[in-house]
Nucleic acid binder design. Structure first.
Length: 637
RNA sequence: GGGGGCGUAGCUCAGCAUGGACAGAGCGCCGGCCCUCUAAGCCGGAAGCCGAGGGUUCGAAUCCCUCCGUCCCCGCCA
């Protein structure tokens, strides 16, 4: 907050000084300089103007500084020129510290909030895992990313809703039915195995192996698919039963990692409500699809996608009249943006662990007063980068339909995939780890289940926590271990840039030290302990913030003051990573402070009070920030 | 063949959009630190022609071009 204020004051000062010198106005942004002795903010305009003015950068800077008028009551203390031509600004530190800390404490849980959304409803689709298997670790990147985006956008003043698309009528589901009916797989797992694990790890994988040798099963698959098309058939009912049961298990995993949803969209409902017909009619009327009378796609309806690629065309309706995969996505996307009538009914599906209601689409009436879902002002679809081409085509079709090519309301939030390290592949017996990394494949059984990773990290965290808290009971230990496990996994998946592949390595996943979620939680808990031991004696009123002069204190104060700017960055770039990096940095500064400054031993009560307030402000930032990443902050770990 | 991503320390990555002040972390390695605020920590050290070459610029890890390596996408599959 204070940082934003300081920055805007600096900017105005410099703009006025440029004007006073008769220098041209150019775009510039004050930035945090790399070293403390360069001040709190720095401006490089002189360097950029020098060429244009045919002057030496240093002279330009001198001219600027000579005309700078520091406004009364601002946070700016002074400014000066630094070679080769920077204009550096420092803040009035005691005031800056006081304002930052008090403001943070006053705002508490809403510190860092920025109103960018203005209440606009925004739809975020994520997870959308086929309901024929358990979530594997790669799916978790999607879930955690989508869920964090939801948290961040809500914090930024959007009415963010999360949608989970359930493809309950596809090929993968048919494979399970083939397994149960024609390949002799037991319809129930042995023992206590989770149903989604059983279907994915055993039935789905093995049926796909069997297809290679048993031609009768391939025929059976076609038969099953045909039967599923009639939603009143026994096969369709069985498919529905299986998918709902797997979905229930998948949701447990998603909730476990901290996600929640607003609505489940079932593909079968989109088919039954014939929403495709609505879209197809519009596409035909507007000439956005063409019937191919010749060429390799003769007899098909195709879309042409003008743009980066010349003459790109994509079949959306086959010559036998059936819709392709991409075509099935169009009505759903069009529904999100309100481009076709909403033909869904809605009903409560279940209650989630956070007590919120999870709704589902339905065919027919539904409940009388459901929440408002579509249309969304913007629809964000979280899917990995391999879907990029199709998503681009869908986006193009939608903006053509909406007639607003300029305003892109359909956003594909893409991210690189998660692969497995060769070492881990070998360790888990998933194949020969001769390569550096191996791509995951659900069908070939090359993956690690999300639940299994969570369990493994949980066990490790449990052992570590028990070591440090030997007197605590098992329930507390498990509760804490679970929070740590979630923190470790979520942070690991979020801190990395979206266009970089994440390589899952079992050993590294179990590392709870260094740049990890537990490191952040640990610092928070350390802070909590100081506050706890300090008791309630010292009040903020007696604090003398001008005494927070140790470099570790100054650095921490200044970092805390930047939180809201960081949140804004994360919002505009849809980048939880930015928050993760910032928090790690902040926590790291706190740890330095923690080692240097024995707070409770401090004799000077006014300084002690200031430090305690600083610690509380630090906690506020970490708590709010981690909350945006879906990571909890236990008081003790 | 066409399109796209990535290439920064032994390993995993920040920084690149909006070019500037000695290129930063974590892991690993070497050496210190429990003095009752939790050592899941801290401090110090070794380690980098920022893939290669060219260009633009007063200035390039950052922008442009070419090349190399690597991964992905390009089906009347989903």
């Amino acid at each position: 907050m204070s940082y934003r204020e300081l920055k805007s004051q600096v900017k105005q000062c410099v703009e006025a000084a440029l004007d006073a010198n008769g220098f041209p106005t150019i775009k510039f942004e004050p930035v945090s300089p790399p070293r403390p002795e360069f001040g709190d903010l720095s401006v490089a305009v002189a360097l950029n103007l020098a060429g244009r003015l045919k002057m030496k950068p240093l002279d330009v800077a001198e001219h600027i500084v000579s005309k700078i008028v520091i406004p009364e009551g601002s946070l700016i203390q002074k400014c000066w020129v630094h070679p080769p031509g920077y204009v550096n600004f420092s803040s009035i530190y005691p005031q800056y510290a006081k304002q930052t800390i008090l403001n943070t404490l006053r705002e508490g849980a809403i510190y860092g909030r920025v109103n960018i959304g203005g209440g606009a409803r925004i739809g975020i689709e994520h997870t959308s895992v086929n309901p024929n298997k358990a979530l594997h670790y790669g799916h978790l990147r999607n879930v955690v990313l989508g869920d964090s985006i939801r948290r961040i956008l809500s914090y930024a003043g959007y009415e963010a809703q999360t949608l989970n698309y359930i493809d309950d009528s596809g090929l993968q589901v048919a494979d399970l039915i083939v397994g149960f009916r024609y390949a002799g797989f037991n319809p129930e797992p042995e023992g206590a195995e989770k149903y989604d694990h059983y279907c994915g790890d055993v039935v789905y994988v093995k049926v796909n192996v069997l297809y290679e040798t048993r031609k009768d099963l391939a025929a059976a698959q076609k038969q099953v698919l045909r039967e599923m098309e009639d939603h009143t058939s026994d096969t369709a009912r069985l498919a529905s039963k299986i998918t709902l049961r797997i979905l229930a298990e998948q949701l447990k995993t998603c909730w476990r990692i901290g996600a929640r949803y607003d609505l489940l969209n079932f593909e079968s409902h989109i088919l039954q409500t014939r929403m495709w017909n609505d879209v197809f009619e519009q596409l035909k009327n507007r000439g956005l699809v063409e019937f191919a009378n010749e060429g390799k796609y003769v007899g098909c309806w195709i879309v042409r996608v003008e743009g980066e690629y010349e003459g790109e065309e994509k079949v959306i309706v086959r010559s036998d009249g059936t819709a392709t995969y991409i075509a099935k996505d169009i009505p759903y996307a069009a529904w999100k943006l309100g481009l076709i009538p909403d033909r869904f009914g809605y009903r409560v599906f279940t209650e989630q662990p956070d007590r919120s209601r999870l709704w589902s689409t339905t065919v027919g009436q539904g409940e009388s007063n459901p929440p408002v879902f579509a249309p969304y002002s913007k629809a964000i679809t979280v899917i990995d980068v391999r879907q990029g081409r199709l998503q681009r085509i869908i986006g193009r079709i939608l903006s053509d339909l909406a007639g607003d090519a300029q305003v892109n309301r359909y956003i594909h939030l893409d991210y690189e995939i998660v692969s497995l390290s060769g070492k881990t592949v070998e360790e888990l017996g998933l194949g020969a780890g001769d390569k550096q990394t191996v791509s995951m494949s659900g069908r070939r059984g090359i993956y690690v289940n999300a639940d299994d990773v969570l369990d493994a990290v949980h066990r490790k965290a449990y052992a570590e926590t028990k070591k440090r808290n030997p007197d605590e009971d098992d329930a507390w230990l498990h509760g804490t271990a679970e929070k740590i496990a979630v923190a470790a996994i979520r942070f690991e998946l979020l801190k990395q840039d979206l266009d970089k592949t994440i390589v899952f390595d079992l050993e590294r996943a179990l590392d709870l030290e260094g740049e990890t979620g537990p490191y952040l939680q640990y610092a928070y808990a350390r802070a909590a302990r100081i506050i706890e031991k300090a008791g309630s004696i010292s009040s903020v009123d007696s604090a003398d913030f001008s005494k927070l002069t140790d470099p570790s204190e100054v650095a921490l104060v200044k970092e805390i003051s930047k939180f809201d700017v960081v949140v804004e960055d994360a919002v505009t770039n849809l980048a939880p990573k930015v928050i993760a990096r910032y928090l790690y940095n902040t926590v790291s500064l706190f740890n330095t402070f923690y080692e240097r400054m024995p707070v409770l031993k401090e004799q000077d009560e006014t300084l002690k009070a200031a430090r305690l307030a600083l610690i509380k402000a630090f906690q506020t930032v970490v708590k709010n920030g981690l909350n945006l990443l879906g990571i909890e902050t236990p008081e003790r770990i």
